[in-house]
C-alpha cells in the first residue's frame, strides 16, 4: 500500500543521508522524497512516498524516529491528507500539435511557462495521479523531458506536525 510519511528533521549536514541510508540499509523502497526548509530555519521537512504494508510502515516510522536528528514522524496515510506534486513537461509543439498541446494543458489546468518555436514547457500542479494522467493523455512521441518534484503532503483539518 502507498504511504506518505512526513518527517521533521534537524536542519544539519548529514541528516538527509541518514534517512536515505536507512531506506537502503533496511531494504525499504523510496518512490519519492522531497525535502525543504520550513518556517523554522533549524528544521527541515521531508515527505517520503513509499510502498509498505502495516507492519512495514510501523518499522519504517520506528526506525525513522530512531535517527537522532529526527524530531517528528507522521504517517499521513493514517489520516485524511492532501498530497501535491509539481511537474514540468517539455513537449514538442509544432504545426498542428501546437494547438492540441495548448488544449491539453488547459484541460489539465496546466500553464505554459516557456515557449520556443518548436516546444512548450507545461507546468502542472496537483495530486500525483493527475500528473501521471496528463503524461498518459498526450502522444508519447511528443514528450521530450519530464521533471517531477516528488510529492509533498500535509494532513487535512486541524492536525499539524510541529514541535510543541
Amino acid at each position: 500500500m502507498r504511504r506518505i510519511i512526513a518527517v521533521l528533521i534537524e536542519n544539519e549536514a548529514g541528516a538527509l543521508s541518514r534517512v536515505t541510508g536507512l531506506f537502503a540499509q533496511r531494504n525499504y523502497n523510496i518512490d519519492s522524497l522531497t525535502v525543504s526548509r520550513t518556517e523554522d530555519e533549524t528544521l527541515s521537512r521531508m515527505t517520503i512516498e513509499t510502498i509498505a504494508d502495516d507492519a512495514g510502515v510501523e518499522q519504517i516510522t520506528k526506525h525513522l524516529n530512531k535517527i537522532v536528528e529526527v524530531v517528528k514522524v507522521d504517517d499521513l496515510s493514517e489520516h485524511r491528507h492532501l498530497v501535491r506534486e509539481i511537474m514540468l513537461v517539455k513537449v514538442r509543439a509544432e504545426g498542428l500539435a501546437r494547438a492540441e498541446m495548448k488544449r491539453m494543458a488547459d484541460i489539465f489546468r496546466g500553464q505554459i511557462v516557456d515557449v520556443t518555436t518548436s516546444t512548450f514547457t507545461i507546468q502542472l500542479v496537483g495530486a500525483d495521479d493527475k500528473l501521471s494522467s496528463f503524461i498518459e493523455a498526450i502522444d508519447p512521441n511528443l514528450v521530450l523531458e519530464v521533471a517531477r518534484s516528488g510529492v509533498t503532503g500535509i494532513a487535512r483539518g486541524t492536525r499539524t506536525l510541529r514541535i510543541k
Binding site: A55, E58, Q59, K62, H63, N65, K66
Partner: peptide, 11 residues
C-alpha cells in the same frame, strides 16, 4: 528500550 525491536520479527 528500542521500540523498533518490538514486533520486528514476532508480533
Amino acid at each position: 528500550v528500542d521500540p523498533a525491536s518490538i514486533s520486528k520479527i514476532v508480533r
